[in-house]
Amino acid sequence: KVYIIDEVHMLSAGAFNALLKTLEEPPDATTLVLVSSAPHALLPTIRSRCLKLAFAPLPLGLVAERVARERGADPATARLCAALAGGSLGQALALDPKALARRQEMLARIEGLAPGDARAALLLAEDLATDRASAEAHLDLLEAWYRDLATLASGGSPEGLINCDLGELAAASAARHGAPEALRRIELCRSARAKLRFNASHRLQTEQLLLRFLFPDV
């Protein structure tokens, strides 16, 4: 028998514990296939009991074509979905095209936050985290954004940017933040995403994220 558990990182804590027991004492003649687009979110005790098989990403053009056809996205948004997903069709289709379309306004608001302005950060968090899906979509956008800034701040070419249409804002933001701060914010985004997968409050995680952007020592 073969059992396939898709997006296994989305399981609850109780389900993870039950799965771990099954992995420790698997039934005879049984193969468990755990599929995940975020293996870093799995418990180390589960990862250590599995044989990892990595699949190569699909061509970005192919992913963009599918996103445009299945989600009704315009070509520019479809290409951005493909780039953000790193060639993963499942992740690209899961991205929210509406959030992508509003990304320039969202990024400009975040980059416009004044140091120490907690009130503005909390108001922005309210707009970004209307529900869990919205919060996760914005985390994806923010991580890609700060990856672009880290690339520019480290002397990388703007040709490889994911947000290639926002070059002017990216260049100004990279010069202001520098690579260490951009990398710090990437780690904050990843930490918030991991907590969301364990059913943390999407509103609270977004608020904490933006406050930690402004208050590095908190």
Rank of each mutant, 00 (worst) to 15 (best):
L58N: 10
L58W: 07
L58R: 13
L58Q: 15
P59T: 15
P59C: 13
P59N: 09
L60Y: 11
L60Q: 10
G61D: 11
L62W: 11
L62C: 05
L62P: 11
V63Q: 01
V63N: 03
V63W: 01
A64Y: 01
A64S: 11
A64R: 06
E65V: 01
E65P: 03
R66C: 13
R66G: 04
R66L: 14
R66F: 06
V67T: 05
V67P: 01
V67Q: 00
V67W: 01
A68N: 07
A68K: 04
A68R: 03
A68T: 12
A68H: 04
R69S: 12
E70W: 07
E70D: 14
E70Q: 13
E70N: 07
E70H: 11
R71N: 15
R71M: 15
R71E: 10
R71S: 15
G72K: 09
A73Q: 06
A73C: 08
A73N: 07
A73T: 14
D74F: 12
D74Q: 11
D74H: 10
P75Y: 14
P75K: 13
P75F: 13
P75A: 14
P75D: 15
A76W: 01
A76S: 12
A76F: 09
A76P: 02
A76R: 07
A76H: 13
A76K: 05
T77M: 09
T77H: 08
T77S: 12
T77G: 09
A78C: 12
R79E: 15
R79A: 14
R79H: 14
L80R: 10
C81V: 07
C81N: 03
A82T: 07
A83Y: 03
L84W: 08
A85N: 10
A85E: 05
A85R: 01
A85C: 10
G86N: 09
G86A: 09
G87R: 05
S88D: 11
S88W: 05
S88G: 14
S88M: 01
L89Q: 07
L89A: 08
L89I: 12
G90Y: 06
G90I: 04
G90C: 04
G90N: 03
Q91D: 15
Q91Y: 03
A92W: 00
A92M: 02
A92S: 01
A92H: 00
L93Q: 01
L93M: 03
L93D: 01
L93H: 00
A94Q: 02
A94D: 07
A94V: 05
A94E: 08
A94C: 08
L95A: 09
L95C: 00
D96W: 02
P97V: 10
P97I: 08
P97K: 04
P97H: 02
P97F: 01
K98G: 09
K98I: 04
K98E: 12
A99V: 06
A99I: 00
L100M: 02
L100Y: 07
L100P: 00
A101Q: 08
A101G: 08
R102E: 15
R102F: 06
R102G: 05
